[in-house]
Design a protein around this nucleic acid. Structure first.
Length: 783
DNA sequence: CAGTGAGCGAGCTTCCGCTTGACTT
């Protein structure tokens, strides 16, 4: 085979991290080069053990990652046949370690292997790299090792402590625990927040001598604390005269945002396209693999010279020379390693591509942002107008903004942050001059409330993490799913409350008081902490505040830098940390009791016993009676939506009304109970989930029978075919279409076969073919 | 996920950062 021959004969083997990159680079290099990818790290610590010898200078026990065994042996074979192996992993701490691990795993020869680096995937950059090889930077590798070992020690000592003291299967780590802390603390701030209100007074004016001129709005420079003050003020404005006191014009400008990094892409895709962080990355990966964009996991805002030139050309041809402004951006984020370019289209002369709807929209966003980053400033003219009332001490103020030259705004405008700041409305202003007399069309004093800090969205959490230097572009999305999977945090939409707003309106010389309403506290796809999240955070804060300190990562990063510079030995750094840390872990393990968040709600009126809520082995539970009393306490799980913090005694007592017998059906007892997955009806050993439209507390026998019959009907419709001769064989209709079941084993039905007309023999044949076996799930979660 | 929470005890869970597939009943 052609490729095989080429591989054996290739004089040079180049190894990069990503296969898409390998393909591109192979095109740049001649026949004498074969380019392969390592798919990231090839060696790691065994996940089953601590794999760090804490007694022996913290020697890490690396092994070839189980899913990389095949790849490594393949690369090893190819390396043997090559004259030179070029280790071309990314130029950052992790990349250096990947090269080192490849060197070890492939058993490379120092004479025959070279380390090269490049920051952009262009022919000249690659050729330049080949001209300037170096050797592996062992100090940088040590810094990575320190990072890896520290994370392992923290994660694998804290997590088991949580299993013992809080709940099994929990986890803690340098990054995830801080992410949870951010969300828990934001929620606490929101709970402690008390909204206050003030009255803003807005007036709509028009020039007196020009009935056709544009009307505009100005705000009085004082806000009134009370309704009475506001009312007195507005009443005093009746039949007063208004005149322009001053008009001030100032030039202003706006500059474009830098091209996307992983974090800014996630934020803008969330705000502008409503995409989740994980989805954004999935779609970006597709665009990358199909050669549409550069690498999507990057912390760099840098563009290659080639890209800048292409952007310039594109802007010139689309909008003209005056729209071009070449800019070099510098990263501001902590701990950025800048191994790649910013995220940009591979070809800047393509404003759009064809693909799935999401691919098209995300691509367009990336194109616009990259193009706009090389465009001129928008030139603005800001106007500030002050208006004097004959019946007020302070002025009314109007702000206007006119765009004199649109510049980059022609293409792209960054969306605004979700903050608690009120938007300062600017409006279009008619031509105004000092001394102009104005007619008052309407004046309104409106009650406005202060707002609490916003809850985090996935994307705004990433932004905050980046700001703190916690996590990396490749881990933002996975970290966010981890903290949700562990049950520390939930992403939810919650309806808000209606709030009454008082208004005082002056129109046509008459004063009117009016109440209007606004919706407040409505949340869409925001992150909320759960009981467990709050509890684990409290536990960690109590015992390990140094680790979930917001500065922990940036402090250790400084030490990693010193290791990289050869100023410190990596295991010294680890030793300094581990001594006191490990002692604290052991002390907590021994001397601290269960950390269940137990809370006394009150007394059960029937038995007089104490009623508690706490976190149990499977989640939040209510308990009647004391644990150390002679009589066993009774337990009941809390329902979805209930929380330790908000549950009342009455609500907790209600939970003990289950399981409850509600009658007989087909000579079998029907009971209602609440399980881990919500309320259910039990009948003849079978379970039937109770849907939201029913209330389990008052479920009648009739309703229960309907639930049972509905499920039976669905079951009947599920069955496409069964066979008299062999009752073990069934053709069923599932979520993903028809499938075959033989003795509880599922099989895929090959494409092109009609499920309804399968004979028993067909079924056996399908079951025999290993192709139709359901493959093992990648992420296996089994007890 | 499977409808528990006593008590005993075995056996399991877990980190962060690099990368893609393979896959869902």
């Amino acid at each position: 085979m052609q490729t095989r021959k080429k591989q054996i004969m290739a004089k040079n083997l180049v190894i990069v991290e990503s296969p898409a990159k390998a393909k591109t680079i192979e095109g740049f290099l001649g026949k004498e080069y074969t380019v392969k990818s390592s798919l990231g790290h090839v060696m790691d610590l065994d996940s089953k053990k601590l794999s760090v010898d804490v007694e022996n200078d913290f020697e890490p026990q690396y092994e070839i990652s189980p899913d990389k065994k095949k790849l490594v042996s393949e690369l090893k074979k190819m390396a043997k046949g090559a004259e030179t192996v070029w280790l071309a992993s990314d130029e950052d701490r992790e990349g250096e370690a990947i090269s080192w691990h490849l060197f070890k795993a492939l058993k490379l020869d120092e004479q025959k292997s070279k380390r090269i680096v490049f920051h952009e995937i262009t022919k000249s950059a690659i050729l330049n790299a080949i001209e300037n090889p170096r050797s592996i930077d062992k100090n940088l590798v040590s810094a990575q090792q320190a990072r890896r070992v520290l994370d392992r020690l923290v994660g694998y000592e804290l997590s088991p402590l949580l299993w013992r003291k809080v709940k099994p299967s929990l986890s803690a780590g340098r990054v995830q625990s801080v992410a949870v802390r951010l969300i828990v603390e934001r929620e606490e701030e929101i709970k402690a927040f008390k909204a206050t209100s003030a009255f803003r007074t807005l007036a709509e004016f028009r020039l007196s001598d020009d009935k056709n001129s544009l009307s505009f709005t100005a705000e009085y420079a004082e806000r009134f604390k009370t309704f009475e003050e506001a009312k007195a003020f507005v009443e005093n404005q009746v039949n007063k005269t208004f005149e322009i006191n001053s008009v001030e014009k100032k030039p202003g400008k706006k500059s474009p945002a830098p091209p996307f990094t992983t974090s800014t892409l996630q934020q803008e895709a969330s705000r502008k396209l409503g995409m989740s962080v994980a989805n954004t990355m999935r779609v970006a990966q597709k665009l990358y693999e199909s050669g549409r964009i550069t690498y999507m996991r990057t912390d760099s805002v840098n563009l290659s010279g080639q890209a800048i030139a292409a952007a310039k050309e594109e802007i010139e041809s689309l909008f003209g020379k005056e729209y071009v402004k070449i800019r070099k951006y510098k990263t501001k984020s902590k701990g950025a390693q800048e191994a790649h370019e910013a995220i940009r289209p591979t070809y800047l002369n393509r404003p759009s591509i064809s693909g799935s709807r999401e691919e098209e929209r995300l691509y367009e966003l990336i194109w616009k942002r990259a193009i706009a980053s090389q465009m001129s400033d928008a030139i603005l003219e800001k106007t500030n107008v002050k208006i004097k009332s004959s019946g007020a001490d302070k002025m009314f103020v109007a702000n206007g903004e006119v765009i004199r030259f649109d510049g980059f705004i022609k293409v792209y405008r960054e969306s605004t942050e979700d903050t608690n700041e009120e938007k300062q409305a600017t409006s279009m202003l008619p031509p105004l001059a000092k001394g102009d007399s104005l007619n008052l069309l309407e004046m309104k004093s409106v009650e406005t409330f202060t707002r609490h800090l916003p809850r985090y969205t996935e994307a705004s959490l990433v932004r905050k993490m980046e700001e703190l230097g916690i996590g990396r572009p490749s881990t933002y999305a996975p970290t966010i799913s981890t903290i949700q999977r562990r049950g520390y945090v939930v992403k939810e939409s919650r309806p808000g409350d209606k709030r009454t707003i008082r208004n005082i309106i002056l129109k046509d010389g008459k004063i009117e008081e009016k109440n209007t309403h606004e919706n407040t506290g409505n949340e869409k796809a925001k992150l909320f902490p759960t009981d467990i999240g709050v509890l684990v955070n409290r536990f960690l804060l109590q015992h390990f505040d140094n680790i979930i300190n917001y500065n922990f990562t940036s402090n250790v990063e400084k030490e990693f830098d010193e290791i990289a510079e050869g100023k410190k030995a990596w295991n010294h750094i680890i030793k300094e940390f581990y001594g006191p840390f490990h002692e604290k872990v052991q002390d907590t393990m021994k001397n601290s009791g269960k950390f269940s968040g137990e809370k006394l709600l009150g007394k059960d009126p029937k038995s007089g016993k104490n009623v508690y809520v706490k976190i149990g082995r499977y989640g939040a539970i209510a308990q009647i009676g004391d644990t150390d009393s002679e009589e066993k306490p009774r337990f009941a799980g809390l329902q979805k939506g209930q929380s330790l913090e908000t549950i009342t005694l009455a609500e907790a007592l209600k939970l003990f009304e289950f399981p409850r017998s509600i009658g007989q059906y087909e000579n079998e007892e029907v009971t209602v109970a609440i399980g881990r997955f919500g309320p259910y009806v039990k009948h003849n050993k079978l379970f039937f989930s109770i849907k939201k439209e029913y209330n389990p507390a008052s479920l009648t026998l009739e309703e229960a029978i309907r639930i049972i019959e509905d499920k039976r009907k669905a079951e009947r419709e599920k069955l496409i075919r069964s066979y008299e001769k062999d009752p073990d064989v069934q053709v069923l209709n599932g979520r993903w279409g028809p499938y075959l079941v033989i003795k509880k084993q599922n099989y895929k039905i090959p494409k092109g076969m009609d499920a309804a007309s399968l004979t028993l023999e067909d079924c056996y044949a399908i079951a025999k073919d290993p192709k139709n076996m359901p493959k093992k799930r990648y992420v296996k979660k089994k007890k």
